[in-house]
């Protein structure tokens, strides 16, 4: 769906994006993470046909963005990290306007407006003026706008920035729903945990270079070499701790009451063996999961400014 190859963007002598490559298949939800000024927005603006690349190629659904930007615009929906509003325009008129900019007929626009307002839970605000909405509502409306022409690829630049926790959770729910609809999503954030639970894979960008691209779990294991395992038992927690301490590749067992956490250096096969052992020893295991761990710490580790590319 999206192929970026050796993308370079220079502003004079400053290189904002440096030989960045990326590939997203249909249905992927890809998190683009990096500190402020890393080159995320520049990359996204090039994909969204709002900027020309210095060199490299970007293709959306097989169409080169430099060759046929108008066709690409029909395939993607772009949501920038800011929200622009027109005074004196109502919510449904706002969506209708952008629908007409994509050449949708009056009936199509009405239908899409109703569907999207329902998706972003703004149906009751249909006749409200856009500038009277809260920030979270505006962000959701902006997302609905980017979906007006039913694009295959969504480019979302910091969609939850400036939102309160409740609005963030609501936005996350909508994005998950979009993912289940089969939309391919490229989403950026400078907060890794925000993306970790939402994305199928992530890319970490720093100083315009991709320093990691892959699954979040793999990134964690690769950097620390350890997997954090969380085990909840109904009873016999002390027996479980004793048993675990006897096993190899286990470090730092901690826990409160019936919830245990440990760092494990084995692979997934060995991990399943560990669960089997606990069960056969009669420990009543309720849950056995790989935990996220201290993802911020990992992010700091990855983006500490090294030139070495991890992948």
């Amino acid at each position: 769906m999206l192929v970026i190859e050796n993308l370079v963007k220079k502003y004079g002598s400053f290189t904002a994006v440096d030989k960045l490559s990326l590939r997203l298949d249909t249905g992927d939800i890809y998190g683009f993470v990096g500190p402020n000024g890393a080159g995320k927005t520049t990359t996204m603006r090039i994909v969204a046909t709002l900027m020309r690349a210095t060199s490299g190629t970007v293709k959306v659904a097989g169409i080169d963005v430099a060759e046929d930007p108008m066709a690409v615009r029909g395939k993607l929906g772009y949501m920038p990290d800011f929200f622009g509003v027109y005074d004196n325009l109502k919510v449904h008129e706002y969506l209708d306007f952008y629908g007409s900019c994509y050449g949708l007929s009056v009936n199509e626009r009405k239908k899409r407006t109703d569907e999207l307002l329902e998706l972003v839970e703004l149906s009751d605000k249909k006749d409200s003026y856009v500038d009277a909405l809260s920030r979270g509502m505006k962000q959701r409306l902006c997302l609905a706008r980017s979906l007006m022409h039913n694009p295959e690829l969504l480019i979302l630049d910091e969609p939850a920035s400036g939102m309160d926790p409740r609005a963030r959770i609501e936005m996350k729910g909508i994005l998950k729903a979009l993912g289940s609809m089969g939309k391919t999503i490229l989403i950026s954030s400078h907060i890794l945990p925000e993306l970790a639970e939402l994305c199928t894979s992530i890319g970490v960008i720093e100083k315009g270079r991709m320093v990691y691209s892959g699954r979040v779990d793999d990134l964690m294991s690769r950097l620390t070499g350890k997997t954090l395992i969380r085990i909840r038992v109904l009873s016999d927690a002390e027996k479980a701790v004793r048993l675990l301490r006897e096993q190899p590749r286990i470090e730092n067992i901690t826990g409160e009451a019936n919830m245990l956490e440990l760092e494990y250096t084995g692979n997934e096969e060995e991990m399943s063996g560990l669960l089997r052992l606990l069960v056969t020893e009669g420990i009543p295991v309720v849950s056995f999961t790989k935990a996220e761990g201290n993802i911020e710490k990992v992010f700091m580790e990855v983006t500490k400014g090294e030139d070495e590319v991890l992948q």
Partner: peptide, 17 residues
């Protein structure tokens, strides 16, 4: 004013020429 209201990009990334 479209730039000031931050709506120009939204307009430019549509299929309106």
């Amino acid at each position: 004013s479209e730039r000031e209201k931050q709506t120009l990009d939204l307009l430019l990334c549509t299929q309106l020429s």
